[in-house]
């Protein structure tokens, strides 16, 4: 464990909690892409199946359980409890255009052609593009609630910090995972436009609205 990975995980946890609280407190999921949240629940489900097969550490197990529970609670709030506030007309990204390439890539490019490994690879590739329905929805509505931008900031920051974690681990532990690094780079690059708007607008007290 290193400082980049720890702050990365905490940033990820913060994002997940911010979103859950936003929906719960405002009793509304306006501006939130349910499709992205379903994809994140799928990412955690396929990646954390090893919860039952291998024990890494208490921290690892506890965080995985929290992530999975929050992900499904968020999906439930969007499509169940507060579905009247779900903006389906703007949440129209064709997720099959993500899932099919990701499945193919996971089957073709992986560390080992074994079920658990292919599921892990699928979850890594899927996570790198899972935010696209949410970013697409914001581009369609032309704006985002400030709390939603904070959610996106911490979510984008988490994988950016993981990039530094991988540099650290390569240098100090000789650990290197090309699949995770390439997917992590793609994931972080997808946030660049948002990061620019967040820093130049939201941090200056303005509302995030598009076109910039």
């Amino acid at each position: 464990m290193n400082i980049f990975r720890l702050t990365g995980d905490l940033s990820h946890l913060a994002a997940i909690i911010i979103l859950l609280l936003k929906i719960w407190k405002t009793r509304s999921c306006a501006g939130i892409s349910g499709k992205s949240q379903i994809l994140f629940a799928l990412v955690f489900t396929t990646r954390y199946l090893d919860l039952f097969s291998s024990f890494i550490s208490l921290y690892n197990t506890v965080m995985k359980v929290i992530y999975i529970m929050c992900a499904y609670a968020t999906v439930y709030l969007i499509y169940g409890k507060f579905k009247a506030t779900y903006d389906g007309n703007h949440d129209t990204f064709r997720v099959e255009f993500l899932l099919i390439p990701v499945v193919l890539l996971a089957v073709l490019i992986n560390h080992a052609f074994a079920p658990m490994e292919i599921l892990w690879t699928f979850s890594i590739y899927l996570e790198s593009v899972a935010i696209l329905p949410q970013l697409f929805m914001i581009s369609k509505t032309g704006e985002a609630e400030t709390i939603t931008t904070h959610y996106l900031f911490f979510l984008g920051l988490y994988r950016t910090l993981y990039l530094f974690n991988w540099i650290w681990r390569f240098y100090f532990e000789g650990f290197f995972d090309l699949i995770a690094v390439v997917a992590g780079l793609v994931q972080t690059i997808l946030y660049c436009d948002f990061f620019y708007l967040y820093i130049t607008k939201v941090l200056k007290g303005k509302k995030l609205s598009l076109p910039a």
Partner: peptide, 10 residues
């Protein structure tokens, strides 16, 4: 490369 069998990152 990553240790096979288990990935220790979240």
């Amino acid at each position: 490369s990553a240790e096979l069998g288990h990935h220790d990152e979240l």
